[in-house]
């Protein structure tokens, strides 16, 4: 029991590193993803195709491969610390996953609202930041949290380049103590805990969206659908299924 407690205490710094990694990757990925979403809605065919290609590449590459690509590949050009490599690699991966969500949410802004904004003489930049962005933030938050969960779990891959995040910390405690299983299981429990917390936030966010946009009639159906298919839809979005569909 004492061993369990001691291990838990030793794991906390690792957990903190994992959370920080996920946070910076998300902080990098979301603006990039929003930019990509705007580009995917752009009238310029060339811009759309370039964006589609980039999104498909980073969505199709295993995240571990992207991490290696950045960590080992970019060392020829600049020397990267592990944390920076994780930030870039998972930031780009997160951007690729969120691009579709943003594209679909931007496309869902009613055309009339854009016209109304034009009719009161708002500029393009103002329309993007004051009309489109709030709308997107409202409806895209739950699926974005879904992607954030994937990003958080993905930070465990940083173990492979020797980062001292949660999994790496657990593994090295196990090596030192000659008791591998317990630290690993405790780390797994912590992953489970954070993931569940995020999933709970996702549910809250979904309720909020339902309250903001939903009519009463749809609510019951929406709730039932949520129960069965939340995880399903989350992954569908990440994979570009569901409403996420790239049509150049």
């Amino acid at each position: 029991m004492q061993f369990v407690l001691d291990t838990l205490v030793e794991l906390i710094p690792g957990l903190w590193v994992s959370i920080q990694m996920a946070a910076v990757a998300i902080a990098v990925g979301i603006p990039l993803g929003f930019g990509a979403g705007l580009a995917l809605n752009s009238p310029s065919k060339a811009l759309r195709w370039i964006t589609i290609t980039l999104v498909e590449i980073f969505r199709g590459f295993p995240a571990l491969l992207t991490l290696y690509l950045v960590y080992f590949g970019l060392t020829n050009i600049v020397t990267l610390g592990r944390f920076t490599a994780v930030m870039i690699a998972f930031g780009v991966t997160t951007a690729a996953y969120t691009a579709e969500i943003f594209r679909a949410s931007i496309a869902s802004v009613p055309k009339g609202q854009i016209e109304a904004a034009q009719s009161v003489a708002l500029s393009r930049g103002q329309i993007t930041s004051r009309i489109i962005l709030p709308h997107v933030l409202n409806i895209a938050v739950p699926p974005i949290i879904g992607i954030a969960i994937i990003t958080f779990q993905g930070t465990a891959l940083a173990y492979a380049i020797g980062a001292r995040e949660l999994l790496g910390t657990a593994y090295s405690i196990g090596m030192i103590q000659f008791r591998v299983l317990e630290p690993l299981l405790l780390a797994a429990l912590l992953y489970l805990l954070v993931t569940s917390l995020m999933a709970w936030l996702e549910i809250l966010a979904e309720r909020r969206v339902a309250r903001l946009t939903g009519t009463n009639g749809n609510r019951v159906r929406a709730r039932r659908r949520n129960r069965v298919g939340r995880q399903l839809r989350r992954d569908d979005r990440a994979l570009g299924l569901a409403e996420a569909r790239i049509t150049p």
Partner: peptide, 21 residues
């Protein structure tokens, strides 16, 4: 175009209020 729109108002059939505001 923008300066014209400042001087000419428009009321739409479907209101087109900004739903987030």
């Amino acid at each position: 175009v923008r300066s014209l729109r400042k001087r000419v108002g428009m009321v739409f059939q479907s209101f087109n209020l900004f739903s987030t505001h």
